[in-house]
Design a protein around this nucleic acid. Structure first.
Lengths: 342, 342
DNA sequence: TTGTATGCGTTATCAT
DNA sequence: ATGATAACGCATACAA
């Protein structure tokens, strides 16, 4: 049973004629051991094909060299990009990523966070500020460093890296108001358990209110993150007579916006002549569409990098800032223009 | 130092007036312990906020309840979807996913696999059949169950779930040949460290050869997985006079194909009247484009599910098949048609 | 610089 | 059904 298994520290120690402590040192602080010995040990490590036993290391040192990320879904390109960035940053420091998905369910998020904590992650990255109270309680009780992403507010109680969804969305709406639009509609993402989607809606409503306009109930449609859904919503919104239907369609994300643009094409409507359509996220595709999609650029990659960096800093004990506001920008492209003359 | 920390089995045992063994049992095989006792223990578990210590569990049981996935990148929607499916399947069995990214570098892949093994994963999911020999050697030496995805071949030496890229690509090319095309070009994905991209090229070449055609050197362009790259390649291919330029553009993936279609639009070319464009992957976007993108449907989700299921079966010791060929299908849509009359 | 010895929190074996 | 206890493989405080 033992001989069949993989070598452990003891085996290496014996083979090299040293103590386990020495082997441990050449593995973890090589400079502490005399070159001659070190080489002898390293040779045995190679020869016997030794691989570290993470569980034992974690148990003895209470460090797993592992970070958890809990995101709504990977089906969303922005989260996929963010996670990719997190992984790339972590691997540079020889940390490994544990990934869990919530499907926008805050109860499930709690379970996932608990599962990752049980796996011993040294830190955790979450999305948004909307969480089950137990989630935060658990994290704090376990003294597990964590940071929230994709949202930023100066008054946040937790470390966070992101941007102000409300404000960015408001600016997008203002851009459309400045172009002269007065009849607005919004195709928003699903708001349940999603503070980003909610804030984007609120931003639009706020901008309209300040100009004495509002978003009628039937001009706000919540749709799942799919091109098909964007198309359906757009068709619904365009069903009324040209004299009263919206001239500006604000979408909660680019996938819905792409759906809207494509449906416009299918309906024979000209964008932006007949109707302006804008999105949010700035997917790689956005700039290449014809017309180009006016949207809000979201720094997914930098958010991932920054979040990972912050957690690594926490773990290393080199703590600095704990709130990072990243810049967003309204990318003005061909899909938005002045409303058609009445 | 101890009091500040979280409770462990011993603490629960003491509080409930039982032994650690009993607590362990109510956690792992509740039916083995009398209901009265069980409840007393469970109450303390709740009250003290006990959370299991994964490292200690893994050390004692040599099971981490963890599976690793090593993929080229998450920036590719198909891999993101696949990983999402893997996670969804794993979580149902209370397994956690360790995710590592290779950036299409087989040396880096080896390091990532080693890192995951050191973290004690109970199984591993890889992409493609192209691997550093050490990668496979390590996996086998550690008796770590693994499966390769995204490719299938009956003669594969390893467990695999996927489809025959060569064949699917060949069928796509044959469809275009059947439509009457004779002047072909291909915008392929980068082939370095990517057997899928290579097989897709070979499939096209093979189909052409069988009809006495070939793919001239300057009609095969390798491009990175980006819309921009697809656009550039398409422009290059269309640079010759209409009389000799290709009438059928075969793309190694949908992202490149979307780039090609959009560039055609920008150039004022009609797809498919002036030129046919086809892709590979069947991204959600493909069917919604105007014209719809003719492409090969790839079952990313089912691949992820199947791979995860296979690994879970290995771990549970309930072994069945180890090779899974999944169906692909040529999705014929508006972007492909007969070549223009000469 | 190197070795010795202890403990990390579980699981699992063996008694009872 | 329950308890006592020996591993599990390593890091680390301490001794030399």
């Amino acid at each position: 049973m033992k001989s069949a298994n993989n070598p452990n520290l003891q085996d290496i120690a014996t083979a090299a004629g040293v103590s386990t402590a020495t082997v441990s040192r050449v593995l973890n602080s090589p400079s502490d051991v005399r070159p001659a010995l070190r080489e002898r040990v390293e040779e045995q490590i190679r020869k016997l094909g030794y691989v570290r036993h993470g569980a034992a290391r974690a148990l003895a040192s209470s460090k797993s060299h592992t970070v958890g990320a809990v995101i709504p879904t990977l089906e969303s390109a922005i989260f996929a990009t963010g996670v990719n960035a997190i992984e790339n940053r972590l691997v540079r420091d020889h940390f490994t990523l544990l990934l869990a998905v919530t499907n926008y369910d805050l109860d499930h998020e709690f379970k996932q966070v608990q599962a990752l904590i049980e796996r011993g992650v040294d830190g955790m990255i979450l999305v948004g500020q909307d969480h089950h109270p137990d989630t935060i309680r658990l994290l704090e009780r376990q003294r597990c460093p964590f940071i929230t992403t994709w949202t930023y507010s100066a008054s946040s109680k937790y470390p966070c890296v992101g941007f102000d969804n409300f404000n960015a969305s408001r600016m997008m709406a203002e851009h459309m108001l400045d172009l002269g639009h007065t009849r607005f509609a919004m195709i928003a993402g699903i708001t349940a358990g999603n503070d980003r989607a909610r804030e984007r809606i609120d931003g639009v409503k706020n901008a309209l209110q300040l100009r004495g306009l509002d978003l009628a109930q039937d001009r706000l449609i919540e749709k799942a993150y799919e091109v098909r859904e964007g198309r359906d919503a757009f068709r619904t919104l365009m069903a009324s007579t040209p004299a009263v239907r919206p001239t500006a369609i604000l979408c909660g994300n680019d996938v819905l916006a792409v759906g809207a643009i494509l449906e416009a094409q299918h309906l024979g409507l000209n964008v932006p002549k007949d109707v302006s359509i804008v999105g949010f996220d700035d997917l790689p595709l956005a700039e290449h569409l014809a017309p180009g999609l006016t949207t809000v650029h979201v720094p997914s990659r930098r958010m991932g990098e920054t979040a990972a960096q912050y957690i690594l800093d926490c773990i290393a004990g080199t703590l600095g800032e704990s709130k990072f506001e990243l810049p967003t920008k309204v990318m003005i492209r061909g899909s938005s223009a002045k409303p058609p003359a009445p």
